[in-house]
Computed example of a mutant assay.
Amino acid sequence: MLQVKDISFSIMDKQILQNLTFSIDQGKFVGIIGPNGSGKSTMLKIIYRHLKQTSGVVTLYEKDIVYFAQKKLAQEISVVSQDTPVLFDFTVKDLVMMGRTPYKKWLDNDNHEDFAIVEESMRLANVLHLENRSFGQLSGGEKKRVMLARALAQQAKILVLDEPTNHLDIEHQYQLMDLVKDLPITIVAALHDLNLAAAYCDELLVMKDAALYMKGTPEQVLTEETLKQVFHMQAGVTKNPFTKKLHLFFYTRS
Rank of each mutant, 00 (worst) to 15 (best):
L2V: 01
V4D: 14
V4L: 12
K5N: 12
I11G: 06
Q15H: 13
L20D: 12
G27F: 09
K28P: 10
I32R: 02
G34A: 05
G37F: 00
L44F: 04
R49K: 11
H50C: 11
K52M: 08
V57S: 13
L60W: 03
K63H: 12
D64T: 05
I65D: 11
V66D: 14
F68N: 14
F68A: 13
K71P: 02
K72H: 13
L73G: 14
E76D: 07
E76I: 03
Q82I: 01
T84K: 11
F88Q: 14
D89M: 00
D89N: 03
V92T: 03
K93F: 15
L95S: 02
L95K: 02
M98K: 03
G99Y: 06
R100G: 07
Y103S: 12
Y103A: 09
K105P: 13
L107I: 07
E113F: 08
E113V: 09
M122L: 09
M122G: 13
M122K: 02
R123K: 15
A125S: 10
A125R: 00
A125T: 01
V127G: 10
L130R: 00
E131D: 05
N132A: 12
S134K: 11
S134F: 12
F135D: 01
F135G: 04
L138N: 06
K143S: 05
R145V: 11
V146D: 03
M147N: 11
Q155Y: 10
K157M: 08
V160L: 11
L161D: 13
D162G: 05
E163D: 10
E163K: 00
N166G: 10
H167W: 10
D169C: 04
H172W: 08
Q175C: 05
D178K: 11
V180E: 12
K181W: 10
P184E: 11
I185T: 13
V188T: 00
A190E: 06
A190M: 08
A190H: 04
L191Y: 01
E203R: 14
A211S: 07
A211T: 06
M214G: 02
G216M: 04
T217R: 12
T217M: 13
P218F: 13
E219A: 15
V221Y: 10
E224I: 07
T226E: 04
T226A: 06
L227I: 13
Q229F: 01
H232S: 02
Q234K: 13
A235P: 09
A235T: 00
G236N: 15
N240K: 05
F242C: 04
K244G: 14
H247V: 06
H247C: 11
L248E: 05
L248I: 07
F250W: 04
R253Q: 15
